[in-house]
Design a protein around this nucleic acid. Structure first.
Lengths: 222, 222
DNA sequence: TGTACATCAGTGAACGCGCGTTCACTGATGTAC
DNA sequence: TGTACATCAGTGAACGCGCGTTCACTGATGTAC
């Protein structure tokens, strides 16, 4: 009769088919992977360390996701995509007024990023990578749609007279996105040298700062 | 008599002490390393591929710089530091008027970054890394000093009445830096989805956009 | 209800590979005479 | 000026290591009877 040896320092599963309902190991892997990829990059994060964080075997990652690239793709599908879609939804749900839409986007993004700091870090890291798998996957899938939406909103704001119409709308989108994203990827600079608190508590205040700086800098003074 | 075999496909040095004056192999290694680290990250760039780019043996990198971390440190010392110092100098040389100083900084940074796109990419990458060697090296050495200088200039602008004094100066620095740096690290987004040209040709125009957006967004409307 | 068995989720050990690093060695250079 | 030799910049092959991945195997589960 096999007996779980309590003498073992490590708690480890017995071989053989495990009890049902333990299938959230897949979720644990995705969570550990999203954090590790954001912290150390795709190349710098090893499957063994990710598996260890998830209390799981490294072989399980290959078993579930095929290979390391498949794990990254799954992180994008099941962790990044839902958040990206919810940002689009927040912009859409804000009504017709383009200024209100922009404020809603900035608020939604800032809150999401403060709750999930790994998100902008993972994206920037992998979009930065010239050979990054995400570069061909992510940019067209999310960044493309998101920036296109923002661009339309800004062009509408220009037509309505809320934003100077001599401003290049693409550059306006770029600047808005810069203001929103950068504080979350420059953490050591922001919370270190500048001593700014970036957290869920300060998210509303930070969003207000970014939105008002952008809108004032951009508004039609006529 | 040893004869350089012209039949070899690869042009390779003969063993033994080489002719004098070929010592720019060190420089070639630093240039190849700065590009590789910026493109693939510290973990993702191999010494063998860097050495190949520099037309040099991998063993030479260890011979010159001790180890891989030493190569990164040398890149910081001999490639990053001069550019960082020249930015500080540009700000200092701009006189007393804080608004003029800020414009000078934005112009100098934008021109430098458009000429050396690897610079912001390398910095963001390694400062992003939780275990990055640069995180403890770079942030205190450059980012700290640079943000402290900008902060002083902005506080002076507030005293002079050029910037609203209800604005948190640290947040103002963060936003200015966000506007300047982000466009150079989000290349696939900026030159892809947004179709914005970021190059030495457009640097002046881009700098003007960032400076005017920032100053208008931030100025004292009294 | 009890027993026999096919299924298959997950394992653990091993695989080859590319990595950073080391080191005995090479031979043109610069110096001593 | 010519020769002998110590120096040392750089090499190439080898090192051990950790990586991603594979695969024969395990045994609880769910099903058939």
């Amino acid at each position: 009769m096999p007996k779980s040896s309590a003498a073992n320092k490590k708690i480890r599963r017995l071989p053989g088919r495990p009890a049902a309902g333990t299938l959230d190991q897949r979720e644990a892997l995705l969570d550990a992977a999203k954090l590790a990829f954001a912290r150390h990059g795709f190349a710098g994060a090893s499957l063994r360390s990710i598996a260890q964080d998830a209390h799981v075997t490294a072989a399980l990652a290959s078993y579930y996701f095929g290979d390391k690239a498949g794990l990254l793709a799954a992180v994008v599908d099941h962790r990044v995509a839902p958040l990206a879609h919810s940002l689009g939804a927040a912009l859409m749900a804000a009504g017709e007024d383009p200024v209100v839409q922009l404020r809603a986007f900035v608020q939604a993004y800032t809150l999401t990023a403060s709750r999930n700091p790994w998100l902008p870090q993972l994206i920037v890291r992998e979009v930065l990578n010239e050979d990054g798998a995400l570069r061909e996957t992510f940019a067209p899938r999310f960044a493309g749609g998101m920036t296109a939406m923002l661009r339309q909103v800004i062009e509408r704001a220009q037509r309505v007279g809320a934003i100077r119409d001599d401003l290049d709308p693409a550059r306006a989108v770029m600047s808005l996105v810069s203001l929103c994203i950068f504080p979350f990827i420059a953490t050591p600079l922001v919370s270190g040298a500048l001593a700014i608190e970036v957290s869920e508590n300060t998210a509303a205040s930070l969003a207000a700062h970014h939105f008002s700086l952008f809108m004032t800098g951009v508004e039609d003074a006529r």
